[in-house]
């Protein structure tokens, strides 16, 4: 088990800088959220507007994909370089996604009838 972390006081300048940095970061998150909400609207709108299914299906799947990447990399901090072992986690998540995709492919194509 690990050792206790030292309690270290930040300098005033550092502290102000970090506060500001956090606030800017939060603003980015809100922008990302706005994008997600917009995409959701768009997805529902194209379905309600009754476009051709050949357009709607790939389009809303694309929107969903972008939303998920936004969630993962912005809200869930997968893009944050400083987080511990984040490269390992990225590998794992994409590996999981790949396996998930294989399962989809198989159960949509080769279940016999």
């Amino acid at each position: 088990m690990g050792h206790d972390t030292h309690v270290q006081e930040k300098s005033q300048v550092q502290y102000d800088y970090d506060r500001k940095h956090n606030a800017v970061h939060m603003r980015h998150q809100v922008v990302n959220f706005a994008i997600m909400i917009f995409f959701t609207f768009l997805a529902f709108a194209v379905v309600v507007a009754d476009f051709s299914p050949y357009f709607i299906k790939p389009f809303i799947l694309l929107l969903a994909g972008v939303q998920v990447v936004l969630q993962l990399y912005s809200f869930m901090h997968m893009g944050e370089k400083k987080a511990v072992h984040i490269g390992f986690i990225n590998t794992f998540v994409w590996m999981g996604a790949l396996i998930a995709f294989t399962i989809f492919l198989a159960l949509l194509t080769i279940v016999w009838w």
Partner: peptide
């Protein structure tokens, strides 16, 4: 992820 993939598929 794999759990939901299985149910989803």
């Amino acid at each position: 992820i794999v759990l939901f993939a299985s149910v989803f598929a």
